[in-house]
Amino acid sequence: MITLEPPFRFATPSDSAELADLVNFAGEGLPLYIWKSLAANGQDPWDIGKARQAEKAREGQIAVVDLGQGAVACLTGYVIGNEPTAIGEDFPALFRPLQELENQALDSWYVNVLACYPTHRGKGIGSQLLDLADEIGRSEGVRQMSIIVASNNTGARRLYERHGYVETATAPCIKENWATRTEKWVLLLKRL
């Protein structure tokens, strides 16, 4: 595991509210849509999101930028191994295209969430988090980095391309009842 220096730190469960907000922001509402589907009668879907983020924080899976008043940006990711994940008939349709793209990014460190509150944009935080992702990827011994982004998220794509990511594949966005303008998912890869 790498060591983080301020303003970076590993998230803690006490960051769960900000993390749920950042994850939903980065996912353009898809996380909240999923949390709503998981919520029991009367359960607040945000509580599900916070619990999921708290668990990831306990597992050390999230790095945050903390400028002294809590998390303002986050990075979550994981290693995609060298074997594709099986996509059977029971695989949820909403996630099928995303998994198909992940299966084309074998042996990579996958940037699952890169998010920054809008009030902190333009300060280089996204670039710093991508540099941190590269450092984590190298420490994990992978040969490449991967990101999947919505085709209409042009700002994020520009950031990723400035950092050496190249479009490799696309897949249609399956929307179900998720209200989104996204038409395609785009897989970007970067050699380390």
Rank of each mutant, 00 (worst) to 15 (best):
Gln104Tyr: 04
Val64Lys: 06
Glu59Gly: 04
Gly77Phe: 06
Ala63Gln: 03
Gly141Gln: 10
Asn82Met: 08
Ser108Pro: 01
Ala93Phe: 00
Leu75Gln: 03
Ala105Cys: 00
Ile147Asn: 10
Ser151Asn: 15
Ser139Val: 10
Leu75Val: 04
Gly70Gln: 10
Asp66Ser: 12
Leu130Phe: 06
Gly88Thr: 15
Lys123Asn: 13
Tyr78Asn: 08
Val79His: 01
Arg58Val: 14
Ser146Asn: 03
Asp90Tyr: 07
Phe91Cys: 04
Gln128Cys: 06
Val65Ser: 06
Val111Ile: 14
Thr119Asn: 14
Ala115Trp: 10
Ala93Ser: 11
Leu94Arg: 02
Ala63Trp: 02
Arg138Thr: 12
Val113Asp: 10
Glu135Leu: 14
Leu98Ile: 09
Val142Tyr: 08
Asn82Leu: 03
Ile62Glu: 02
Gln53Ala: 14
Ile125Tyr: 12
Leu67His: 06
Val142Phe: 08
Ala93His: 01
Leu75Phe: 04
Gly124Leu: 12
Ile148Phe: 00
Leu94Cys: 01
Gln144Tyr: 04
Gln53Leu: 07
Ser108Glu: 01
Ile62Gly: 02
Asn112Val: 00
Arg143Tyr: 01
Asn112Ala: 11
Leu94Thr: 00
Gln104Leu: 15
Arg96Val: 09
Asn103Trp: 12
Val64Asn: 08
Asp66Leu: 11
Asn82Val: 07
Val65Glu: 07
Glu89Ser: 15
Ile80Asn: 13
Glu89Asp: 15
Asp107Pro: 02
Gly68Phe: 06
Gly155Arg: 09
Lys123Val: 09
Ile125Trp: 10
Pro97Met: 05
Ile125Val: 11
Ser151Gly: 05
Gly137Pro: 05
Thr119Val: 12
Glu102Thr: 00
Leu130Glu: 07
Arg157Thr: 04
Ala86Leu: 13
Tyr110Ile: 01
Ala71Gln: 05
Ala133Val: 12
Ala133Asn: 10
Ala133Ser: 15
Val113Gly: 00
Gly60Phe: 06
Leu101Asn: 02
Gly70Glu: 09
Ala73Val: 08
Arg121Ala: 05
Trp109His: 05
Ala54Met: 14
Asn153Leu: 04
Arg138Trp: 07
Val64Met: 09
Asp66Gln: 11
Leu75Lys: 03
His120Val: 05
Gly141Asn: 13
Ser139Gln: 14
Gln99Leu: 03
Gly126Cys: 13
Gln53Thr: 06
Ala93Asn: 06
Arg143Met: 07
Asp134Leu: 15
Pro97Ile: 06
Leu98Glu: 01
Arg58Gln: 15
Asp107Arg: 09
Asn112Gln: 13
Ala63Pro: 01
Gly81Met: 12
Trp109Thr: 00
Ala54Ser: 15
Arg157Pro: 01
Ala150Glu: 09
Gln104Asp: 05
Leu130Asp: 03
Gln99Trp: 02
Val111Trp: 04
Val72Pro: 07
